[in-house]
């Protein structure tokens, strides 16, 4: 790392600290949310600097994209242009400067010193050495879908649980889409959606040998769905005449569990694929997991169970 790189890192760190402070402390909630989204995007740059391109993709798509969409639409409902009623949540007085600022700085310093002394983890050589048997060429994908596939199974389980929890809170609010006077957004949504699908498919295919894979792909596809929703499309996720889309919500979890149990019954360990079919198994898992993640991110964005028919009148319990 040369001098330019170090200066870049320092500037990036200062910007991130400022944005994090704004996200938690800005008087205006809208400003806080926008700061958080920009924080997520700059974090993606930091991940690239730290040689973690997979995380950069996921952070940009999920951390900044999906979370940002969720936060902005929640903000639209929570603060109906009520001005700055939450202003001044924190005020510095003399005691703050004398007592708390030094204490907090000491805590941050102690944390840094403790983190600096942590030993380096030693699984890199093991993971790289076993890469040939895993069925894929990219180490992170191998860890996610082969070596530590149990984590991924549980993670998709958490996402399914989140969707169940959100849907069980009652019917979705009626207006998912803003009242849009401009015809540009629906047109743009329709034009862009195929691009979203294409990018998602590319990321999914790329995951077997390079940074990419089911999570960024699912997030991009889910973001495309959210864009269509914002452009005025009806969520047909539950309607009977459009086919079994709803089953895809749990398909990723179900297929992963199926693969794990079949592997265990065939005499191997839980989540042990025979080396001969490992790459095919991972491909199937990745495609179903990606589609599930896309639809689940879309499902939690609805913030309630969508109605089977589009125009029923709703009542809240």
């Amino acid at each position: 790392m040369g001098l330019v790189g170090q200066v870049f890192d320092a500037l990036l760190a200062i910007a991130l600290v400022w944005l994090a402070w704004q996200a938690t402390r800005a008087a205006d909630l809208f400003r806080a949310v926008v700061s958080f989204i920009v924080f997520g995007l700059l974090m993606a740059v930091a991940w690239v600097r730290l040689e973690a391109p997979d995380i950069a993709l996921a952070e940009a798509a999920i951390g900044a994209g999906a979370t940002g969409a969720l936060l902005l639409s929640a903000l639209d409902r929570l603060a109906p242009r009520r001005g700055r009623s939450w202003a001044r949540v924190w005020r510095a007085d003399a005691r703050t400067w004398v007592l708390w600022v030094p204490a907090v700085m000491a805590l941050a310093g102690a944390l840094t010193a403790a983190a600096w002394q942590l030993p380096a983890p030693g699984l890199g050589a093991v993971a790289t050495g076993a890469l040939e048997q895993s069925g894929v060429d990219h180490a992170v994908t191998a860890v996610l879908l082969n070596f530590r596939a149990l984590d991924t199974l549980l993670e998709i389980g958490v996402l399914v649980l989140a969707a169940v929890a959100v849907w069980s809170m009652g019917p979705a609010p009626a207006a998912s889409a803003p009242v849009m006077p401009s015809p540009t957004l629906p047109m743009l949504g329709r034009t862009l959606f195929p691009v979203f699908v294409l990018v998602a498919a590319y990321l999914l295919w790329r995951g077997s040998h390079a940074p990419g894979g089911a999570f960024p792909a699912g997030a991009v596809l889910g973001a495309g769905g959210i864009l269509m929703l914002l452009a005025g499309a009806q969520p047909w996720i539950r309607s009977a005449e459009h086919g079994p889309w709803r089953a895809i919500l749990s398909a990723g979890f179900a297929v992963m569990l199926f693969a794990a149990i079949v592997g265990a019954l065939a005499g191997g360990a839980f989540f042990e694929y025979p080396a001969a079919i490992a790459s095919h198994a991972i491909l199937v898992l990745e495609v179903t997991a990606g589609m599930s993640i896309a639809l689940l991110l879309f499902a939690v964005y609805l913030r309630g169970e969508p109605h089977p028919a589009a125009d029923t009148d709703r009542q809240r319990c």
């Binding site: 995380i55 070596f147 993670e155 929890a165």
Partner: peptide
């Protein structure tokens, strides 16, 4: 990043964590 070669396991953990964080955020926002 301290390890040589680069350890992919924490990367996979963070990817998992990002999805868990967005799930938590979605439920909490609802």
């Amino acid at each position: 990043r301290k390890a040589t070669p680069l350890d992919p396991v924490p990367h996979a953990m963070v990817l998992t964590g990002i999805v868990i964080a967005v799930s938590t955020t979605a439920v909490a926002l609802a």
